[in-house]
Design a protein around this nucleic acid. Structure first.
Lengths: 345, 345
DNA sequence: CGTCAACGTAAAACCGGTTTGACGATCCGG
DNA sequence: CCGGATCGTCAAACCGGTTTTACGTTGACG
């Protein structure tokens, strides 16, 4: 015996399926007695409307999508993603809207994924990891898929966006390190074509007035390690390094320690994103908590508002908070070189 | 100008929509020349078949679902989930199948979510956090939703399952600690109505021959801390504690240190799940890596096989590996009590 | 050279809902 | 007491595909 359809319910209630539909949607008035008959019949038959049929007829899927261009294996060690998704789900769950996730590792796969979303997998999408020049913005416009961008983009784009002020915590951190006596402060950034990496690196360069000690990483432990090595090999090595995420920071300071440097005495280290274990490391890692959960909430709320017909809007979430911990605690080392470093110079 | 439909393509190619459909699906032979005309027309019009219409007609959504019963905020600090999802996606991406995620925090919300899946949001689901007696198994049978269970369940259930041997690493860990001289070995488990928590705790009890030092936690840092306090307050306190995940282990050893105990000298500590930062803690945390990525792969592959019509099957993944690190390194303390402990006794 | 199968395509039914147009019944004001 | 507005329901069209049925052509075979 198959799943009951709306026709079965209509027959059982002695009405037509239009009446059943209207009884639920309320788009036409239905008398209380008829409604009661319909609901009773539906309950008796244990009817659940087919979301497939509903989606086709209503041209609405009740799902929102996220297409991830990262490699699946990178997801696994990322502190941002799960928290962000949690925030998104916290909002969607209230509205019984589903989240459709698709990873695509090539540009063509990504285009296919967005087209699939547009063809009815989802009513709108949230775009992560925005690039400074991002083909997706034009593409989404072209295929007319509603979207919310996570990060600041050209104000001329017709999409809502959720922004954060990444510059301030970086400036604050640099100021803090200066007060401690640091003058040689380096930054290991994320890929600079990302909006958020670029914003952080930009604030750093502005504060320092120089890009001499800026190195472009890629958020992986490997790049954190390699670029730390490069920086520590400089004749006048930095006494503090700011990393664009905690993973690189931890890789960096592990490496520094393996070279005999003490953190924070010989080298101050700070991360970004505040992984939930960072406070438990020793020394505890200074970081910037970015509340991805809340950003997820806001992005989802914004997308639902767009879908409900509200005009697109850019909202700025004030979610960044500096967490000063032991890894940047204490005065800068007197001499820029330590005895151990000299063998490298 | 609206999205083109199959009718537009058919008209442009001078055939009927049935021919267009068959040209793509291959369910009827179509001559090469006609096919070429159809494909050319589709390309010219930039046609993408509506997944909504396709889903309705084909009774297949090309999506698989996961319903999470955890609270959204717990997701954020969980090492298992993102890696598992990555593994699932790695397989799904190859087949261009989407993943539909829904969180539901109450039993009724959860039922609604599964019904929604069954009503066409997804072709099948992966069931996580299996309970020893889990209403979902019967429920999924009742609503006839194909599923893969993550964890061992009653062999009589008609579902495929993906199992792991959680007992061996626990036994190995206990044996290792015994060799180091530990005799008072405690275990802070996860909720014992979970299949995996129960399996781990069971192996522990079997190895120890006693449940005197078993405490039931809930995977949160808070419970790790509280139960560690309880164990350390015992007159004959344990010299080693096994935790059911890394979060509790870290909370536990932070607490122990705050009481003046040294890890591993006064107290050996081990976690479970091997969070990606655990190796970087100091002391580095002994843990059991459980390769959630691979389990995700296997679960997804198994579900796709089920959906393709293969008979359900239980596969066991050998993915657990003990990672012995500094937090359990060194001989057990001579005296079960330390001087600091005595003030608590 | 007639017959039958295989081939390729058209036409129509179907999937299970939503939405629109039509219509009888009831209610209202004048 | 009549005409028009409102209410409640039905019937049919529609969403955009897939699948089934039917039928005219070809080609092979006896």
């Amino acid at each position: 015996m198959d799943r009951p359809t709306i026709d079965d319910v209509a027959r059982a209630a002695g009405v037509t399926k239009a009446t059943v539909s209207h009884a639920y949607s309320g788009k036409r008035p239905i008398s209380a007695t008829t409604k009661a008959r319909v609901f009773a019949a539906a309950k008796r038959l244990d009817w659940v409307p087919s979301s497939r049929a509903r989606a086709l007829a209503a041209r609405r899927t009740d799902a929102v999508g996220v297409v991830l261009s990262r490699d699946p294996s990178i997801l696994a060690s990322d502190a941002f993603f799960p928290a962000f998704i949690s925030g998104v789900e916290a909002v969607l769950a209230e509205h019984e809207i589903a989240l459709v996730l698709q990873v695509a590792s090539s540009r063509t796969a990504e285009e296919r994924a967005y087209r699939a979303m547009a063809s009815g997998r989802a009513d709108g999408v949230i775009v992560l990891d925005l690039h400074r020049v991002d083909w997706r913005v034009a593409y989404l416009q072209q295929i007319r898929l509603p979207a919310v961008l996570l990060g600041a983009y050209d104000a001329a784009s017709p999409f809502s966006s959720v922004r954060t002020d990444d510059a301030t915590p970086v400036r604050d951190l640099v100021a803090h390190l200066r007060e401690l006596g640091h003058t040689r402060i380096a930054h290991v950034s994320g890929p600079l074509d990302y909006v958020h990496s670029h914003a952080r690196a930009g604030a750093y360069v502005q504060s320092l007035g120089s890009r001499e000690l800026l190195r472009e990483g890629d958020f992986t432990a490997g790049s954190g390690r390699a670029l730390t090595a490069e920086l520590l090999d400089l004749p006048d090595r930095p006494t503090a390094i700011l990393y664009a995420n905690d993973t690189m920071a931890i890789a960096g300071y592990s490496y520094a320690r393996s070279r005999g440097l003490l953190v924070p005495d010989d080298l101050a280290v700070a991360g970004f994103d505040d992984d939930h274990l960072s406070a438990h490391l020793s020394p505890a890692l200074t970081s910037v908590s970015t509340d991805p959960f809340r950003r997820g909430r806001v992005a989802a709320e914004r997308l639902l508002a767009d879908l409900a017909g509200e005009p697109p809007e850019s909202v700025t979430v004030d979610c960044n908070a500096l967490r000063l911990r032991a890894s940047t605690d204490g005065p800068a080392p007197e001499a820029p070189h330590t005895e151990l470093e000299e063998e490298f110079s």
